[in-house]
Design a protein around this nucleic acid. Structure first.
Ligand code: FES
Ligand code: FES
Lengths: 134, 134
DNA sequence: AGGTCTGTAACTTTTGATGTTGCGAAACAT
DNA sequence: ATGTTTCGCAACATCAAAAGTTACAGACCT
């Protein structure tokens, strides 16, 4: 795998699950498929479970399945569940000479946030249903 | 500074330069302003120069200035010059069981690319002129 | 009871970004 | 010419986040 591949892993995995919504998928199976490790898979899918997109069950017939119909899960849901914060990294510990109260500073920040908002909006137009039966 | 702050540094810096387009800005000055190091600044601005957005000059009155009018430089230009590749990380070394030729796989990839394309399109609607005189 | 799973915590490894130092090349001032 | 300023670049050192790993407890089914 690689860095910042959480979104990638989540999308491909949910794509597969959406194509077989009726059975449970184990983290071992998914990990093998994605060329990674079960624990890593659980870490990522765990976030999606917290967001209510997935359900997991323990024990013999355990594993993961979608919490709702593919058509009711958008890519924006997935993106948000991972809180990637991709386009607008936090301000860090910048500038002394350019205060946070600066108009320019606030303006730049708001433009970045707006761009990300628009990205999420775009992702909201695609659902997992579009990954079925392809 | 922090990780993945190239875009952040570029936007804020160009914002400042756009507000004083007529004088040269040195990397030392910019670095001080952004709370980082001159070499780091040159690394980032260097990419923008390669993309034709900035011009740099050596020597006494040297430094950096815009290569064209603020209204002719969009945020998409800046984003692209840094080739961030933010939303769609390269496929890495995934799956043996899920071939690259898989329809599902291609579909997921194309959706990611489309999302990024739409992000860039959105960034293209804002120019540096909007950072002037704020 | 025994076998599968997930859930987590701890730790190590890897990777990319950033920070740092040093020096050469160009431009300019004196 | 000489010295100063500033970029350009290469070669490191440092840092932080992500990913990989190991280990074990808890839940569930047969
Ligand atoms: S650092 Fe000056 S505008 Fe953000
Ligand atoms: S891993 Fe990409 S669709 Fe199977």
């Amino acid at each position: 795998m690689k860095q910042n591949s959480r979104l990638w892993l989540a999308l491909h995995t949910l794509g597969h699950i959406a194509n077989e919504p009726d059975r449970m998928h184990t983290s071992a199976e998914i990990a093998d498929h994605a060329g990674t490790n079960p624990v890593v898979v659980r870490r990522v899918l765990g976030r999606l479970r917290e967001a209510g997109l997935l359900v997991s069950e323990k024990g013999h017939a355990g594993g993961w399945r979608l919490a709702s119909a593919p058509k009711d899960i958008t890519l924006a849901d997935i993106y948000s569940a991972l809180d990637e914060n991709i386009v607008a990294p936090p301000p860090a510990d910048y500038a002394r000479s350019c205060a946070v109260e600066s108009e320019l500073h606030k303006h730049v920040t708001s433009v970045l946030l707006e761009a990300e908002r628009s990205l999420v909006e775009r992702l909201g137009e695609t659902t997992l249903a579009q990954f079925q039966e392809v």
